[in-house]
Design a protein around this nucleic acid. Structure first.
Lengths: 146, 146
DNA sequence: ATTCTTGCAAAGCATTTGCACCCTG
DNA sequence: CAGGGTGCAAATGCTTTGCAAGAAT
């Protein structure tokens, strides 16, 4: 039930439930968003074209904007000056290898709770906290690669 | 002694010790970097020109690149698609108000130590951690503004 | 049928680059 | 005076926009 499915119906539902029309372009973009890891627009343009070669880059930007606006995906803000997108919206942190510019998701509810508790005990005066993200920079040791 | 001075000698020393030649352009840029809070290049161009009106925007970019490369300043990666710069290199976190796109530094050694200890107890397999940054998103309540 | 979506071509804009002159050390 | 720094102008490249034709509901 808590399946992170990437099946076609799931993808279509995800688009439809955002109040957007289901088009082959959008399906293909969302599929690639789910397959890749924090892809850039440029990467998506290339990848989507492998299956849907006629798609315009402008359309991809349109679609990404619409998805972000409707909360279907998120934007990632890290090193580098091009935008990256994230199809996973669950609360998670990022592992970031600056050298390779590789970003991996890192789920750790315990860490999140611990930091949350820290700020309950030590509130920041003048700042109402809504979201905590931990950016972990370091180096991947080449095994466990995707 | 642990004075966060912005005096001229300190500024010149900071440039010289990075192995860069001391020029009026660089002095002015670094002064504005220290005065502002995570300024953008555009903001710096405008501000520096108030004192040094003939400076070229290309020069500012050259200078910022040199400063970042030599570790005199850092880059900040957050919302928005323009680059921001940070003259403070001490380990610190950021408070980020998305609505106003305002970023404040947040120093909290205790938090840092706690998270560091957390990862000593719970290392991430396949990832060698070198730096921890906590991105705190929320809303400033308008008092204590700079 | 109507509204949303696509895609082309062109514009926008932050940043980079080539190159000649100038200044710091 | 040598090497690095500056600045102009032009280029670059990601992203946005205007608009007309096409597709989804």
């Amino acid at each position: 039930m808590i399946e992170e499915s990437t099946g076609l119906e799931t993808i279509e539902r995800r688009i439809r439930e955002a109040g957007l029309k289901v088009t082959p372009q959008r399906i293909n973009v969302l599929q690639m968003l789910l397959a890749g890891s924090h892809p850039t627009a440029e990467y998506l343009i290339e990848k989507v074209r492998e299956k849907y070669s006629s798609i315009s880059s402008s359309t991809i930007y349109h679609i990404l904007d619409a998805f972000v606006e409707k909360g279907v995906i998120g934007k990632v803000y890290t090193h580098g000056d091009v935008m990256r997108y994230d199809a996973i919206l669950e609360n998670h942190h990022h592992l970031h290898d600056i050298k390779s510019d590789r970003i991996e998701d890192y789920f750790d509810e315990q860490l999140f709770q611990q930091i949350k508790k820290y700020f309950e005990d030590n509130p920041i005066s003048g700042f109402e906290l809504t979201d905590i993200k931990v950016k972990l920079r370091g180096k991947f040791s080449n095994n466990n690669s995707k």
